[in-house]
């Protein structure tokens, strides 16, 4: 089975390292991935504040394209960005649950010569890696276990609720399980799904920064070596505003924030550049990773 891949706009700019590391890891695990041809923006939380029908219709174009581009009975569409994942799954769900929405949206798609039959399954990479591929198979391919690395797994909000069914909406564990398989230690922290504020850091910055400060302080207080994320906006917020948070609230926070796929890539022995590690503001210190005999020391 081939997965269709929906990158979304962020993975082409601020979140490039997420795309690079995701594709590298899927290649290393030999999971076939094909980019959805001519995808359009999902609309995030913005279109729907203007016009709901148009918002659903534009998101549904991606679902219709996915259906047309796949020969499988049920189409598996991977959306790594939280906002894309949420919007696409919400569209899929509402088209199924509300016949009036379905009629309106299919009428809109029809004007563009498209049709959606309800065959797409929107999936998050965490879900695919754990529930389709399997942790045992990941474990077998680990070359550099991340022993001793304490990781705060941060899921953010929209990957786990309200439409995801693969994990718990408040206290998910999928990423923790992956991190554990990599040989690292997921720390217990209660804020793993507390919102980072999303685009508030660009609009009402004070409110946004306070949310990030709470998350970072908690991770630091629990001695995490790094925060692992699965969303480009969370990564951006938690990483890029640390200096500003330190200045504004007199804090001393300096903690690397990486994508979970980057950690996977390191453990799988992938090339650092192919994982986009050079794009991080602060590279995680991985000195305590035990190198197996014969492995090149300069890799890490």
């Amino acid at each position: 089975m081939t997965y269709l891949y929906y990158p979304g706009c962020s993975l082409r700019s601020t979140g490039r390292a997420y795309e690079e590391s995701l594709l590298t890891v899927f290649r290393a695990l030999e999971i076939p991935l094909k980019e959805l041809d001519d995808w359009n923006c999902c609309g995030a939380t913005s279109y729907v504040s203007i016009d709901e029908t148009d918002a659903f219709a534009l998101a549904a174009r991606n679902l219709a394209l996915a259906e047309a581009q796949s020969s499988d009975g049920s189409v598996q569409l991977i959306a790594p960005c939280s906002a894309c994942y949420l919007v696409l799954s919400k569209t899929e769900r509402y088209l199924e649950d509300y016949p009036d929405v379905n009629a309106k949206i299919n009428a809109a798609l029809d004007r563009a010569g498209l049709r959606y039959h309800g065959k797409v399954d929107v999936r998050h990479p965490l879900d695919v890696l754990v529930n389709d591929f399997g942790l045992e198979k990941i474990a077998k391919r680990i070359k550099h276990p991340l022993t001793g690395l304490e990781v705060a797994c941060y899921y953010g909000c929209q990957t786990v609720r309200p439409f995801a069914t693969y994990d718990h909406p408040q206290y998910p564990e999928t990423m923790d399980k992956i991190v554990k398989v990599l040989g690292a230690e997921p720390i217990d922290w209660p804020l793993k799904t507390r919102c980072c504020g999303g685009s508030l850091t660009g609009t009402i910055q004070e409110a946004g920064l306070r949310l990030n400060r709470a998350l970072l302080k908690e991770a630091k207080g629990r001695d995490a070596d790094l925060v692992a994320t699965c969303c480009p906006l969370c990564q951006h917020n938690l990483e890029c505003y640390q200096p500003r948070i330190n200045r504004m609230y007199d804090e001393d926070i300096d903690i690397p924030v990486a994508y979970f796929t980057q950690l996977m890539g390191i453990a799988l022995g992938c090339d650092e550049r192919e994982l986009g590690m050079h794009r991080l503001m602060k590279k995680p210190s991985l000195k305590h990773i035990m190198h197996p005999k014969g492995a090149s020391a300069n890799a890490w």
Binding site: D54, L114, R279
Partner: peptide
């Protein structure tokens, strides 16, 4: 800082079938 790390793109991403987008939107918009 984002730019030197290749995280700010200058070129604009576009879809090919923009006519489809326009057709999908509520008529009269």
């Amino acid at each position: 800082r984002l730019f030197v790390r290749g995280r700010l793109t200058v070129g604009r991403e576009r879809v090919r079938r923009r006519d489809q987008l326009r057709a999908i939107l509520t008529p009269g918009r």
